[in-house]
Design a protein around this nucleic acid. Structure first.
Lengths: 127, 127
DNA sequence: GCACGGCATTGACGTCTGTCGATACCCCCG
DNA sequence: CGGGGGTATCGACAGACGTCAATGCCGTGC
């Protein structure tokens, strides 16, 4: 048998307070699968110590831009690894890459973090 | 050779505007490795579609509590998998488990998400 | 007290991810 | 135009992660 509801709970009747007409299998406040997958993909880009440190380093040099060779030292990672993390952050929309000549400069995308925060469940808005 | 700075960049001299006396290998605004690892571990708990949907479902039923059997249906996952995700969220401090009799009720930990948001680089505070 | 049912744990498996060395790319300078 | 150096990509490998079936635990009701 499956694990869906087969017995009433003693005291609590879970009422669906969402929009009338929504599926009986859904609870109020449900996040659809596509939204969840998108947000999870973005959060996965953040959920790495090296990438968090990259963001902190770039944020701490607001105005000034940072190139790969500035990061290998503080992070203690090889150049290919740092380049990989930067690519992940650029693909996720947190950084922009600006290649001028031989050097590649990275800077924060304003509002990218706020957008993620706003999409979090239970964090409706920033005042 | 290593990949540290070996040549001056044409226009930019990266100055260290952080606290005087910090390591020359560090840039301003650096996040130390321990902080980064902690935050990354917490974010990893969030960076999964199933867990995001769990949080949304619980948040959407604020006040009412949610038990495992309420979630297997909307999530389309097996009971052990849902239980696993709930454990991850409880361990990360986002949910509390309250086992009353046969049922286990889960509810949001107020402020847990805000704490994560505040720790993000470039998101200094919530007003 | 015995069966039922909700929940947690275990073990296994396929996939994803972070890391590095090697190498390719390409712009600048002499 | 040839070499040097900063960066990106490739291939490989170890470890972590998400998922499920099977099983164990335990409170409830008959």
């Amino acid at each position: 048998m499956n694990t869906s509801r087969t017995a009433d709970r003693p005291t609590l009747e879970l009422v669906d307070v969402g929009a009338p007409g929504c599926s009986p299998a859904e609870l109020a406040g449900a996040m659809n699968a596509e939204q969840a997958a998108d947000l999870a993909r973005t959060l996965k880009a953040l959920a790495d110590p090296a990438r968090l440190r990259v963001l902190a380093l770039v944020a701490g040099n607001e105005g000034r831009e940072v190139c790969v060779c500035d990061l290998t030292g503080p992070l203690g990672l090889s150049q290919p690894t740092v380049s990989h993390h930067l690519k992940v952050l650029v693909d996720a929309g947190f950084l922009t890459r600006d290649k001028r000549g031989v050097w590649a400069y990275f800077s924060l995308v304003p509002g990218a973090l706020d957008a993620v925060v706003s999409a979090l469940p239970g964090v409706p808005a920033r005042s």
